[in-house]
Structures are given as structure tokens and as C-alpha cells.
Simulated scan of single mutants.
Amino acid sequence: MGYIKSAALEETGYVVLDRYNNEIDPKEWLDVEYVDWKSSGDTRFAPLASAKGEIECNGFWNHKPPRTDKDGVWIDSQTAIAPTLTARAMEPGANVGRCRIIELQPNTYADCLYNLHQDDNNRLNPDGTGWVVRGFFNLTDDTTSYFVLRENRTDPSEETRIALPAGAQLIVDTQRLWHAAAHYGAEPRYCLITSWESGPELDAYIAKYNGVNKVDSYPVDQETLDAGQVEQERRIAARAAALAARGQQEVTVMSEA
């Protein structure tokens, strides 16, 4: 039967929406409770919705009974502090699974390439239902930072870089695309990440905010691009060698973050 997917994401795996231009009190992402939960880079997460309405970020399949990343339970103590962010996550009317604010410490393009990953969004997702994708709403004005997307982790020819000013909004099939953020500067980056079920509600939301599935890549000088690619290859090879020295092999797994 297959999954219900958004046609807007079929070609490239992502859409960029109109920029969000309303003011939000930074307390909505600074005053919520964070937990140490590692994704790509030095990160913490503040959950707004979780499997059982508790302040934790685990995949829903790790709970009892295990289930797919849908029907998240809003956390009252968190949503009371972040009402605007909660409303934005709920606006599409699509089923919400996990909804979290990520705090990412500064890194480099080379770090970003090494941290590229795919998300295990659809574990236990019943056939014939909506494919789970993720929305990324950048909260801080990270004008020198960018989101990196690749179809193949190590192939730079397929790379798209999306700028991350305050208000940047994108929806990504993160189980399909390898992704991570390059974040320059001295302060953390904050972004709202929401797991949504694909379907007519999400399609209407994408259309409402003029989603486009191709954008010009954020400009990065060729020296940085080349050096980052070399460093990614070096780190991958070093990890493989370290595992081999212990009699182990590299196993590619999707992220549960």
C-alpha cells in the first residue's frame, strides 16, 4: 500500500516556507526546561510534546507500549512558558509526535559534515498512514549559519545549504536526507523541531506559506567546502580504523534524536 507522502517533498526531500516575521519573547526558548540529549553536535533539547507528557526526548518506540512517533502528549509546564511556539507547532493541524526546542553550541562546517545523519522517523509507522517528516523553525538570528542537506552523506555534489536567519522555516524528510547544521558565532542556536504526519493538513500548510522545493545554497567559499570534505573523510576513516582495531565494523544507523 505504501505511505501517504507530501508531493511537495517528492523531488528534493525538503520545502522552504515563507519566513516567520512576528516577534517572539526569547523566554519561550530560554526559560523552558532542557535535558541533555545528544543529536548532531553539542546539543540539549527542551521537549514541548513527548510520548507521555513527561520532560524527556526518547523515541516513542522505546516506551511501553512501543509506538510510532505520532500522537505526542503536550507538556503543560513547558507549553505554558512557550505558548507561541506551541501554537506554531499545532498550526498545520497535522498529527504531532515529538516537538522539541534544540540548543546547538557553535561548530564548523567540517563538524557539520561529520555530524550528518538521517532520522528514524517512521519506526513502527503503520503502512497506509502518513509518513513522518520534521519541521524546523529557526528562533535565533543565525545569519552566518546554515542547514546542510545531502542525499548521500559523503557526496558534496548533491549538497544544499539553507540559510538560518530568525524566522527561517523548512520542512524536511529527515529519514531520506542526511542533515545537520553548521553554526558559527559565540552563542547557541535555538530551533523548534516538530514531527508531523504527512497528509492533506500538512499539504495545505505548505501551500499556505508558499513552500518551495529548491533554493539557492547559502554561499560558502570553495576553500571551506573542500577542507570540510577532506576533514569529514578523515574523521570517518579514523573512526573506522578505531573500530577495526577493536575487531568491530562500522554500522550505519539512523538517529533516534
Rank of each mutant, 00 (worst) to 15 (best):
I101L: 04
N22R: 15
D120V: 00
L164S: 00
I236Q: 11
F137L: 15
A207C: 10
E10V: 07
S50K: 08
A237C: 02
L124T: 07
R67W: 09
Q169M: 15
K214D: 10
G59T: 04
E187K: 12
N138T: 14
Q175P: 02
A181V: 15
W37H: 12
L202C: 03
V215W: 00
G135V: 01
K52A: 13
V148I: 14
A51R: 15
S195W: 02
A49G: 01
D31P: 02
T12R: 13
R153Y: 09
V73Q: 14
D141W: 09
E11M: 06
S145C: 08
Y205A: 06
N107A: 02
T79P: 02
G13L: 04
Q118E: 09
S145P: 09
L164N: 06
D221E: 13
I193G: 05
T68S: 15
A46N: 02
S217Y: 09
E23H: 14
D127C: 04
T174A: 12
Q118L: 10
E151I: 05
D36F: 07
G2Q: 10
H183T: 05
V212R: 10
Q169Y: 12
A181S: 14
R88G: 02
Q169K: 09
S77K: 13
G53E: 04
P83L: 07
G2A: 15
D71A: 13
Q175R: 12
V133D: 02
A89E: 03
A204D: 11
S39F: 12
V230W: 11
G135Q: 11
R123Q: 06
Q229I: 10
G93F: 07
P47T: 07
M90N: 12
P66R: 06
E158K: 12
Y3T: 05
L149P: 11
V253F: 07
P219D: 06
N62Q: 15
G2D: 15
V15Q: 00
R235N: 08
E201W: 01
R19W: 01
L104G: 00
Y209K: 06
E201C: 06
G97D: 01
V253A: 13
A166I: 04
E256F: 09
R134L: 07
A51Q: 11
V230C: 09
S198T: 10
N152M: 08
R161P: 00
T68E: 12
E159F: 03
L48Q: 04
Q249T: 15
T140Q: 00
P106S: 05
A94E: 02
D216Q: 14
A244M: 03
A7S: 14
E223G: 07
N58L: 14
D203E: 15
G93Y: 07
H117S: 06
A241M: 01
I55E: 03
E33C: 10
A207L: 10
G93A: 03
D226Q: 12
E10Y: 09
N213F: 03
F60H: 14
T84N: 14
R150I: 02
L177E: 04
N122E: 01
V96P: 00
A186S: 13
T143N: 13
G41V: 08
T129S: 11
N22F: 12
G2E: 15
T154Q: 11
L164P: 00
D120K: 13
F136G: 07
L164Q: 01
R19K: 13
D226R: 10
K208P: 03
C57D: 05
A51P: 06
N122R: 00
T224H: 04
V220I: 11
K5E: 14
E10L: 13
A82I: 07
A240R: 14
R161A: 08
P92K: 03
N22K: 15
